[in-house]
């Protein structure tokens, strides 16, 4: 009987721990980032220390700890995109908007992120804005895209 109880307890704690990553992902999807309050809340729910959660979350590049801008720009830096000139997009944002990887503009309009291969290599270089994929970009069309996001009318 005692063995069974121990097993059951262990099983429960494993399942709690296993749900950490999916939970963090879900929260980020709905809230856009992981706030301190969120992490504290998850820590209480799953009974995993906050330090431990930060340790895990900061390991994975997908998690953000600051709110993203209204237009979250992800630049694919995978091989095919890299060869196609994607690092130039990052540089262009740096030079022309002062925005680097993981940063958000003060007016919270744009945030920029360089990401690993998105698996759309056949249409590289690829840029994703709020989940929408734009393929076959170059520095010029990329900056035009950014400008179109700035203007009041939505890009087609």
């Amino acid at each position: 009987m005692a063995v069974n109880t121990a097993d059951a307890v262990q099983q429960r704690s494993r399942e709690r721990r296993k749900s950490l990553l999916p939970l963090l992902k879900k929260v980020q999807e709905t809230e856009g980032y992981l706030s301190r309050e969120t992490i504290r809340h998850i820590s209480r729910t799953l009974r995993v220390s906050e330090n431990e959660i930060y340790g895990v979350a900061s390991f994975y590049p997908q998690f953000r700890f600051q709110p993203p801008g209204r237009y979250h720009i992800q630049v694919c830096l995978g091989t095919a995109c890299h060869v196609g000139g994607a690092p130039n997009f990052m540089e262009a944002m740096k030079i022309e908007r002062g925005l680097g990887h993981g940063q958000t503009t003060p007016d919270r309009r744009f945030s920029l992120e360089g990401v690993g291969c998105l698996g759309c290599c056949a249409i590289s270089p690829v840029v994703v804005v709020n989940g929408e994929v734009y393929g076959r970009m170059n520095r010029v069309t990329f900056m035009r895209l950014v400008e179109s996001l700035e203007s009041p009318e939505k890009p087609s």
């Binding site: 995978g78 091989t79 095919a80 690993g116 290599c121 056949a122």
Partner: peptide, 8 residues
């Protein structure tokens, strides 16, 4: 968990 760039 395919995350090698260039593989899709």
């Amino acid at each position: 968990n395919e995350s090698a760039p260039g593989a899709f």
